[in-house]
């Protein structure tokens, strides 16, 4: 039993970790739904994890001038406030429009140049120590 216990605990921890990411992902996909109706295609890829309050995570993406993008963020934690903002390769904010409803946040970007952009996820406040999040993006 002594040998099995750490394995069980690890499996339990991992299943819990991926469960909250799955929940957050459901919210991120829900955040993207209105844009699908507007003709956007949602990438099958998703990015996620967990962050403490005031912590940030950056993801670099190659965006193309001529396309329009919505980055959609979801969290599994009720009452948490998360933001996603998009910056160009020089660190300049390029958000064109932002929305936030409950656990869903989204930001629209219309790149003026083709190149690298950074999606920065921030946990502004949360009732929990660690807050699960997931991000998807849609393009048109």
């Amino acid at each position: 039993m002594k040998k099995i216990l750490p394995v069980i605990l690890l499996a339990l921890a991992l299943s819990t970790a991926f469960a909250y990411v799955d929940d957050a992902l459901s919210f991120a996909q829900e955040a993207a739904l209105p844009y699908v109706k507007k003709g956007f295609s949602v990438r099958e890829d998703a990015w996620g994890g967990d962050l403490g309050v005031k912590e940030q995570q950056a993801m670099q993406a190659q965006l193309f001038k001529g396309n329009e993008y919505w980055f959609c963020l979801g969290t599994d934690v009720k009452g948490a406030v998360l933001t996603v903002n998009i910056y160009d390769s020089k660190g300049k904010l390029v958000n064109a429009e932002t929305t936030r409803t409950g656990r869903l946040s989204a930001v629209r970007v219309v790149p003026t140049k083709t190149g690298s952009y950074f999606a920065i996820v921030t946990v502004v406040k949360s009732p929990q120590e660690r807050t699960g999040w997931a991000l998807v993006y849609a393009y048109k």
Binding site: A17, G49, D50, L51, E55, Q56
Partner: peptide, 12 residues
């Protein structure tokens, strides 16, 4: 990405 996010979350 989950692992990356956990490992490289930036404390800011």
């Amino acid at each position: 990405p989950v692992a990356a996010a956990i490992l490289f979350a930036a404390a800011s």
